[in-house]
């Protein structure tokens, strides 16, 4: 009874429905692109405003952007190492900013007020396509980082302390993108669902702490994603002795 009604309510949340765009014979999730364009547009406007007039004594937005830059540099430097962190800082920073902006944008903006013919707007990172895309980019990056820095010696990593490690290391190449994508996807989707269900059941006060928890999770997930990506790249370029 209650459970049944909960399920129908859940169905009212339109889980797993998408706004399809058909281009030729490929199909896209339109709502993911719409929200990501809005959020990335806002991010780019914000950054252009902050970097428009760069001064030696930072003021206002420039201060914030410099803090952000410093934060990302520290993240990249501690994980990747002094030698090559510069090459990978933009990628790590973009991952962090993309995930962070997507998560927070999804949680803070009342997208539900905008009605779509099908599906609903929300965090782009709550769509499995986005998180798999990000995770695969990370995989490609660490392979590229390892091969470009160490050449074929990169594959020494697979037999590193002993050749017994070989199957585990090969397995890791599959589990890394899997865990990266599903961690992010699961966390953000679960947060959206919990907030959605709570708002549906108790529209007053009760969802607010959960929303704050969601914001916290969102920020943490962005940090985790960027840190892990940097760690994987750092692991690939690390020199064994």
């Amino acid at each position: 009874m209650f459970f049944n009604s909960l399920l129908t309510n859940l169905a009212a949340l339109e889980v797993g429905q998408h706004l399809y765009w058909q281009i030729g014979n490929i199909r896209l999730h339109g709502q993911v692109f719409l929200t990501s364009w809005i959020l990335l547009g806002a991010l780019l406007v914000f950054i252009s405003l902050g970097t428009k007039k760069m001064e030696n004594d930072p003021k206002g937005l420039q201060n914030l952007l410099e803090f952000l830059w410093d934060y990302i540099r520290d993240l990249a430097r501690t994980q990747i190492g002094e030698k090559v962190y510069r090459d990978w800082m933009p990628f790590i920073g973009t991952l962090f900013l993309f995930v962070f902006v997507s998560n927070w944008g999804g949680a803070l903006i009342p997208w539900r007020l905008i009605k779509l013919p099908s599906g609903e707007l929300g965090a782009p990172t709550a769509d499995i396509n986005t998180t798999i895309a990000l995770a695969l980019l990370v995989s490609l990056s660490y392979f590229y980082a390892g091969l470009s820095n160490k050449g074929w010696r990169y594959f020494e990593y697979y037999v590193h302390p002993t050749p017994i490690m070989l199957p585990f290391k090969i397995l890791e190449d599959f589990t890394k993108p899997l865990s990266l994508s599903f961690r992010l996807f699961g966390n953000i989707l679960a947060d959206e669902l919990v907030v959605g269900v709570l708002v549906f059941l108790v529209p007053l006060i009760l969802p607010i702490p959960v929303m704050f928890l969601g914001l916290f999770t969102s920020a943490i997930q962005a940090l985790i994603f960027a840190t892990l990506a940097a760690y994987y790249i750092g692991e690939a370029v690390e020199e064994h002795h």
Partner: peptide, 20 residues
Amino acid sequence: GGLFDINATLPLMAIQVVAL
């Protein structure tokens, strides 16, 4: 539809992130 509906969104999103 469905939660695990993987389609062309994935490569396009990857291109978008690289461009970003």
